[in-house]
């Protein structure tokens, strides 16, 4: 069972980041990941996530995206949450720009866990009030608390 509290900490949350496009947002998310966790080759993680975006956008609608990737060389699944100051164009199905990114990277052989995590995020992010609260959270600590208290 995926437990978000075990998966990420307030240090894995960034609020009001400014960027121009999804490439910059994903690159920054991996930078945050690499700051807090051991990632042998961060560029490879970025490339994996961007390749995944080429398949179809990981925008799930209502301003939220879940860029993710299974990468060689990672020993654990990591998640970073980025809230953008200004929404960016993301190619989401509802065509709404994205300002909340839940970025996930994990070991290639950990598919089942990765799927469970994606499903959990999709479930909790369906809630409109919860999404609004994420956008109103004052800082990274309160954003983190909101997310872990939701599961």
């Amino acid at each position: 069972m995926v437990e978000l509290k075990q998966l990420f900490s307030p240090e894995d949350v960034e609020v009001d980041f400014v960027c121009n496009n999804k490439e910059e947002a994903i690159a920054y998310a991996v930078e945050v990941m690499a700051r807090n966790h051991h990632i042998p080759d961060p560029q490879r993680v970025v490339t994996t996530m961007l390749d995944r975006e080429k398949l179809t956008s990981t925008g799930i609608g209502e301003g939220i995206a879940v860029p993710h990737g299974l990468c060689e060389g990672l020993s654990q699944t990591m998640m970073v949450v980025i809230r953008l100051k200004n929404p960016i164009e993301y190619g989401a199905p509802d065509e709404k720009p994205v300002d909340l990114l839940f970025c996930i990277a994990g070991p290639r052989d950990n598919t089942a866990y990765h799927l469970q995590l994606l499903s959990k995020l999709a479930r909790i992010l369906h809630n409109e009030q919860f999404r609004a609260a994420l956008r109103e959270a004052a800082d990274r600590e309160s954003l983190w608390k909101l997310i872990v208290s939701r599961e």
Partner: peptide
């Protein structure tokens, strides 16, 4: 049918 899971077709 759900784009978020599109990369798991191989799985």
């Amino acid at each position: 049918e759900v784009p978020l899971f599109a990369d798991f077709r191989e799985f």
